[in-house]
Design a protein around this nucleic acid. Structure first.
Lengths: 188, 188
DNA sequence: TTTATGGTGTGATTCAAATCACATTACGAA
DNA sequence: TTCGTAATGTGATTTGAATCACACCATAAA
């Protein structure tokens, strides 16, 4: 839980009492490679804060193709946010790619924390702000970039993920076929 | 300004004193068709809340093609959020497509309001939450949808915009060529 | 060690959508 | 009204990336 405190205090300082209170809303969970934290159709009970490991958030389209909406690693938050916030069944899967652990937070917990502590509402707002900007950036790349540019942007932004996850998953994240991606990275 | 109050009170009730305070951070601005609220390279001074009219937020790629990141109409917020939040020069343009008016809010104002009033921090968090989910949804469509599906999703989500903005702009929003879109809507 | 399974490169072929090139229509300004 | 400009439809052609099909190489399990 010390990691949680550090994570929050990057945004806002906390007193010991505050943190003690906050803590009670988080449950720790060990996860192993290939384990699913969420299945399509499930109720989306939690949002996850990654303490360790790598994960993918993805869905399967009607042709059976897998598309990755988000990767997550240490200190990233993840879930099927549409399902989580709207209390609808998941359209997505969350799967572990590398053994690790996560903290689980319910929507109730999130809202309660935000209501109880202005600081926490601030924390979540800042996180969302950053997330929003990142998504808008991603849309930009999807709209105008050819596979080459997409790959370069990704490499620049997440050189670490490039090492940690197989290329075929990166392809599924970039919206490019495995083969095309393979030919690209060669030409670089 | 009454519209602003209603807009905020859809999320959280306000006392008169609170609203009086809030109000001081917003400046109203009339805008005419073809007028730019933001140019690429500008400092991104404001975020805008649309009171009336339609607007597009777009950028121009290195081949000179225009890509629309966001449309906005009544009660939507818009700006180049990356530039706004990171205090970097704009990568985007904001242009008016239909006469109207907007409220302008500086980043300072936004942060001040959030710090002063827990309610306002809440308001912004809720807005960001919805925006985040919408962007994630858009990414989903961009990743898996063919032009047909993209168009259908858009029609379902924004039938009003379909009437209000020219097709070629919708094409630029969907990441599809004008011609392809034209052939599609015919086949429907 | 062998065997299987998943990741990856690379050629050949196909195909969907972009591009190019017009014609047509709608609309606002002079 | 007439002119000019923007929006739109539609054919012909090109092209970039997907798909198909395979070989090769890891790593992990038997």
């Amino acid at each position: 839980m010390e990691k949680l405190r550090q994570h929050i205090e990057q945004i806002t300082p906390l007193t010991d009492e505050e943190f003690t209170h906050i803590q009670t809303f988080f449950a720790i969970k060990r996860v192993r490679k290939n384990q699913f934290l969420l299945h399509e159709g499930d109720e989306v009970k939690h949002e996850f804060l990654v303490l360790q490991g790598v994960y993918k958030v993805f869905y399967v389209d009607n042709e059976g193709k897998e598309h990755i909406v988000q990767f997550a690693q240490e200190n990233w938050w993840m879930t099927d946010y549409s399902g989580y916030f709207k209390k609808k069944p998941a359209n997505m899967f969350v799967e572990c790619l590398e053994d690790g652990e996560v903290l689980c937070l319910t929507l109730y917990g999130r809202e309660k924390l935000s209501a109880d502590l202005h600081k926490m509402e601030h924390f979540f707002r800042v996180k969302l702000t950053n997330g929003y900007v990142a998504l808008q950036e991603r849309i930009r790349i999807l709209l105008s970039g050819n596979p080459q540019q997409r790959y370069e942007e990704f490499s620049k932004l997440h050189p670490d993920l490039l090492q940690r996850v197989p290329k075929k998953l990166i392809a599924a994240f970039l919206g490019v076929s495995r083969e095309t991606l393979s030919r690209l990275s060669g030409s670089k």
